[in-house]
Amino acid sequence: MKLEDRAKLHRQMLVIRRAEERLQKLFSDGHVPGFLHLSIGQEAVPVGVSQALTERDTVSSNHRGHGHTLAKGVDLKGFFAEILGKATGLCKGRGGSMHVADLSKGMLGANGIVGAGLPITTGSALALKMQGQGHVAVVYFGDGALAEGVLHECLNLAALWKLPILFVCENNGWSEFSPTERQLATSLDKLAKAFGIQYSAVDGNVVAEVAAASTRLVKAMRKTPAPAILECSTTRVRGHFEGDRQDYRDGDEIASLSERDPIRLSASAMAKAGGTPEMLAEIADAVDAEIEAATQAALEAPLPSSADILADVYTKVAG
């Protein structure tokens, strides 16, 4: 991979990281209503996948979806405003962290129900196949979703009908507060085999690996529609949600995760490819400025009006 491409991906990962770190701070300062699930440590997956996508390709996401959303190119200011529940948010403050969507960018929504993105994305893939423009659909889900019934229905349907869908499993080893090994009697590679779906596994913290696999799989399915599974082993650094003290985890295990930090790995890969410390500092400064501007805009934005409580429930008022 060329240095400038590496720099681009590095920058996108850093946007996600800094955005979430800023949200973490805003949350502890009481600016974020509700729940907040952070994907710190998992940034390489959506960035690696999204570089293979266009705006017309669709993605859907889960409760830990900030990275998926930002990597699909949604507006950073609208994103921050949404999570702060402001009227200027992408969803006018009605969705929040678990429901950020930007249909104009093919981002069909984060989701509060584990596994729910799977059928929605499978249907999107069917629509894209019918439309015949070579677009693809991507669904992000965690290893916790592997125990959901709809996963099996969707793997079957996608294989049966040769739908252009990339199933991206972010395997961070945790189903909420429980290790997945205590939750699942099988594994995704075995499921892939059972349904006859092409399966690839990558180190989900190495962005170049995710990018290379995604590019290969997406390119193939644009040409000949068929599903593929990409399992990305990755690391959930924070708790299930902000405020989760992670008492169920070994402190050494959490500390060891920094060795696999995708951004640290990306920085050292850039250095090996000729990147300079100045280059990295320049990226970091630009990202920080962008995050700060989005944060300030969100903090200053108005709250939604209570007069709008019935707005958008239906497209038109019937009867």
Partner: peptide, 17 residues
């Protein structure tokens, strides 16, 4: 196939597309 949850969800996704 006999997959009521999936086909209903697929309709949601197709409608959004």
């Amino acid at each position: 196939p006999i997959s009521e949850a999936a086909i209903t969800g697929m309709a949601v996704g197709a409608a959004l597309t």
